[in-house]
Design a protein around this nucleic acid. Sequence first.
DNA 1: TTGACATGCAAGTATGCACTTGCCTAGTGT
DNA 2: ACACTAGGCAAGTGCATACTTGCATGTCAA
Lengths: 121, 121
Amino acid sequence: MHLPSVDGVADVFKALADPTRRTILDELTERTGQTLFELCGRLSTKHGLASSRQAISQHLDVLEAAGLVETRREGRYKFHYLDTTPLEQIAVRWLDRTAAPQSGASTTNGDTTNVDTTTGE
Amino acid sequence: MHLPSVDGVADVFKALADPTRRTILDELTERTGQTLFELCGRLSTKHGLASSRQAISQHLDVLEAAGLVETRREGRYKFHYLDTTPLEQIAVRWLDRTAAPQSGASTTNGDTTNVDTTTGE
DNA sequence: TTGACATGCAAGTATGCACTTGCCTAGTGT
DNA sequence: ACACTAGGCAAGTGCATACTTGCATGTCAA
């Protein structure tokens, strides 16, 4: 069981807010399971991204904290795998409201129980 | 005339990055066409959000710039309407790549240069 | 008109975040 | 052993942004 941090939803949105991280997801979509160095090379070559190794490493940490990237260590290599599961619930939050109760209805599916009550952030 | 800037996608992601703005979208999903004061009241009452009027107004500006909220002026009232159109293209970017090409995002995979030095699983 | 209401604008503050810099640990091959 | 490689850690810098403060604009009712 992968434990998402206390507030997983907010982490996903924050992770997607950065264009570099979105490009990383693009690259991992084309080829999942890349190492940090692989990503650095391909990002700079194919995507014209000139970020340092440390910068990309930190971005990967954010993506992993958001649950969008899973890592597996193997020797001195660390492979990064894309996980799109958190993405399936973020857009439908405002899209799929067709059969939603208007007011006063008890939580039918618990969707509205936003773990996102980090108003204080 | 709010032109969708060259990279309107980034604006959408940035707009969604803030928890307060996400709550505003939640509220507008339940009842679209609210005024600023209506939103302030309901946000503080139902969502426990203690943001000032000016803060919410600035958030609405961001949401409008992202194309997620449209406004209509009527007398001294300004109504805010939810527009979920930009949301339909953000998550599918990494979910199904067989779909139409995105804007700006170089989803065009020229070649899959096999730098497969290691096991690719 | 006057005054209350709904909203807008602009400068200032302050926290967050992306990125750098520098050094460190661990695995690999000779 | 050694050098090389892949990656990690932590403090510091600079910019972006969320929020405040204060006043201005415009609309409606009396």
